[in-house]
Computed example of a mutant assay.
Amino acid sequence: MDFFDLEMQKKIAEKDLSKGDSIWPTCIVQLPNGQKQALSFPFQNNEEKAYNLLKLRRYIQRVHADSYMLVLEVWVSAEQIPTMTENRQEEVLFAVHDGNEETHYNWPITRNDDGTGMLTEPRDNDMANAQGSFADLFDITVFEQLNTTQKRKLDKVIDKMMKTYH
């Protein structure tokens, strides 16, 4: 699977959109041996989002991932907080990190009355390197700021994840 293949990205997203489903936040991680693992991490609120991102960052570090592709539904707007405005566009974001730099591909979604959807052509991405909680999952600064007990507790969760996927 080539993370930079735009047709492959479109197929991944349209599979769920054609059924009227939302796209679950998913990270496809490439291991040093070339194997790929898909990790889904749904969240209901900012606390769950932060915890799942922390787990994902630590997992990527522990398995010595070479690269990853993060797939998310996002709202985009000229406003500071897209969720607070009616003037926004629903998109699927593919954040591809090759181990050195992160590239973003934004695919606008067109929804039908029945909730099904399809992607239009990817828009020009004017965000050189997007900032925010999902940026650069190789960065483990947040993990390093935890106290020893918190680190041990998180590593136990990661150990279970590693047993599941290996």
Rank of each mutant, 00 (worst) to 15 (best):
D98F: 01
A65R: 01
L53F: 04
Q89C: 09
N112S: 12
Y105D: 03
N100T: 08
Q37P: 01
E91Q: 11
N112Y: 13
V92D: 00
T120W: 11
T85N: 04
M69E: 02
V92S: 00
L93A: 06
M69R: 05
R57T: 00
E101N: 14
Y59A: 06
V96H: 01
N100E: 11
R57G: 00
D66V: 14
P108F: 06
N100R: 12
Q61F: 13
Q37G: 03
E91K: 09
H64Q: 14
F41G: 01
F41Q: 01
G117A: 04
T116F: 03
V71Q: 07
L72R: 11
Q35E: 11
K55W: 01
M118V: 10
G115I: 10
L53K: 03
I81A: 14
D124E: 15
K55S: 02
N45R: 06
R88A: 13
A95R: 02
R62V: 11
L119D: 05
L119V: 10
N45A: 06
N46C: 10
D66P: 03
I81T: 14
S67D: 06
S40H: 11
K49E: 11
Y105M: 05
Q61E: 13
A38K: 05
D124R: 11
N87P: 05
C27R: 02
Q35G: 05
L56I: 07
V76Y: 13
G117W: 05
L119C: 08
V29H: 01
H104C: 10
A78N: 12
Q61M: 07
L53W: 00
P82T: 10
E47C: 05
T120I: 09
H97C: 02
E121F: 13
I81C: 14
E86I: 14
R62A: 10
I28Q: 07
H104W: 09
